[in-house]
Amino acid sequence: MAKDNNTKYSASQEDSMKSKVEIKQPLPQNQEKISRLVGSVFIGMGILLVAFGIFSFIKFREEPLLDPELEAPAAASVTSITNDETIVVKGEAKGYDSIFVYVNEEKVGEAKVGDDAKYSFEYTVEEQGEYSIAVAGVKGFPNRYISPMSESKISVVDYTSPDKDTVTIKYGPETNKDTFILIGTTEADATIEVKRGTESFEGLADKEGKFRIEGITLDEGKNVFSVYITDLAGNQVLLDEKVRITYSASGDVNGDAVIDEDIPQAAGTFDEIFGNQLMMLFGIIALLAFSTSSTFVYLKNRK
């Protein structure tokens, strides 16, 4: 009886397990062929896409072909002179994808052209000197074409400060006026700054290096100013020599405390010349009055 029960239990357990296991039937032969064919097609397309990508990348990286008919973009803005290590090139390149930047006729980099047709590129220099900057426009894919180079512009990198030994300044050490004039020479186109505390007075040297700064205000008593020279590149130097002037409103020193024999006021003779001219004017008026009265008396007596 026990044996029959065990046999029944095993059969029941087997049926339960079969109901839980899904038995898959093999695919029909034609359907399996179709699956393999579709898979092969996708694999082939993937290989072709990879091959095209590699080809396009290699083709794009090649130097573009020169098209003389293309109009060269302009390097509208190039750092003209600086004491920095970076030259900035900016401009517009409408119709181009990118631009090549050339320094001294050698390609140094590439910049993308934005949707607004503008581009910007920074070139880092290794030493001071003059650099010739030009650009060319590039467009096309995968075949790329390049325009002729633009007209070059010169950028000067200068790390050298003005030479203090070549700077000359002239002024009078005493004055009875509340302002004075400073004249002198330095390198061409430099900026001269006369400074005392928060007060600052500036002048610009001409092409020959001559400068003249007027209206520098003074306080009663002794005044001390520092002089700074800054070149076009931005290099600045502080002169060792200070400007020292004594201002006394009750003093008898003529002029604006500047030494320049070509300028009467600066030489301290302005008041004397003005006085002499005034006396001469009065003398001429007196002479004319005497001549007129004498002529009138003479004509009256003849009548």
Score class of each variant (00 low, 15 high):
Asp116Val: 05
Ala117Asn: 14
Ala117Gln: 03
Ala117Met: 04
Ala117Ser: 14
Tyr119Glu: 01
Phe121Ser: 01
Tyr123Thr: 02
Tyr123Met: 05
Thr124Tyr: 07
Thr124Leu: 11
Val125Gly: 03
Val125Trp: 05
Glu126Gln: 10
Glu126Cys: 00
Glu126Leu: 09
Glu127Trp: 00
Glu127Lys: 15
Glu127Tyr: 06
Gln128Asn: 13
Gly129Cys: 09
Glu130Gly: 08
Glu130Asn: 15
Glu130Gln: 09
Tyr131Arg: 08
Tyr131Glu: 08
Ile133Leu: 04
Ile133Asp: 01
Ala134Tyr: 03
Val135Phe: 00
Val135Met: 02
Val135Pro: 00
Val135Trp: 00
Val135Arg: 00
Ala136Tyr: 06
Ala136Arg: 07
Gly137Phe: 02
Gly137Ile: 01
Gly137Cys: 05
Val138Gly: 01
Val138Pro: 01
Lys139Gln: 13
Lys139Asp: 05
Phe141Ile: 09
Phe141Met: 10
Pro142Gln: 03
Asn143Cys: 01
Arg144Tyr: 08
Arg144Glu: 01
Arg144Gln: 15
Tyr145Met: 09
Ile146Asp: 00
Ser147Tyr: 04
Pro148Cys: 09
Pro148Met: 09
Met149Pro: 08
Met149Phe: 06
Glu151Tyr: 02
Glu151Val: 11
Ser152Arg: 10
Ile154His: 06
Val156Glu: 08
Val157Asn: 05
Val157Gln: 05
Tyr159Ala: 08
Lys164Cys: 08
Asp165Asn: 15
Asp165Tyr: 04
Thr166Phe: 04
Thr166His: 03
Val167Asn: 04
Val167Arg: 02
Val167Glu: 11
Ile169Leu: 15
Lys170Val: 04
Lys170Arg: 12
Glu174Phe: 08
Glu174Asn: 14
Glu174Gly: 00
Asn176Asp: 14
Lys177Phe: 13
Lys177Glu: 11
Lys177Asp: 08
Asp178Arg: 12
Thr179Pro: 08
Ile181Asn: 11
Ile181Trp: 13
Ile183Trp: 00
Thr185Trp: 03
Ala188Lys: 15
Ala188Val: 12
Asp189Trp: 15
Asp189Val: 10
Asp189Leu: 12
Ala190Tyr: 07
Ala190Ser: 15
Ala190Glu: 02
Val194Glu: 13
Arg196Thr: 03
Arg196Glu: 03
Gly197Met: 05
Gly197Ala: 05
Gly197Tyr: 10
Glu199Lys: 14
Phe201Met: 02
Glu202Thr: 14
Glu202Lys: 13
Leu204Met: 06
Leu204Asp: 12
Ala205Lys: 02
Ala205Tyr: 03
Asp206Val: 07
Asp206Lys: 10
Asp206Gly: 13
Lys207Thr: 11
Lys210Val: 10
Lys210Met: 11
Phe211Gly: 06
Arg212Val: 04
Ile213Tyr: 10
Ile213Gly: 04
Glu214Ile: 07
Glu214Lys: 14
Gly215Asn: 14
Gly215Asp: 06
Thr217Asp: 11
Leu218Thr: 06
Glu220Gly: 07
Lys222Cys: 01
Asn223Ala: 13
Ser226Glu: 15
Val227Asp: 01
Ile229Pro: 01
Asp231Val: 03
Asp231Thr: 03
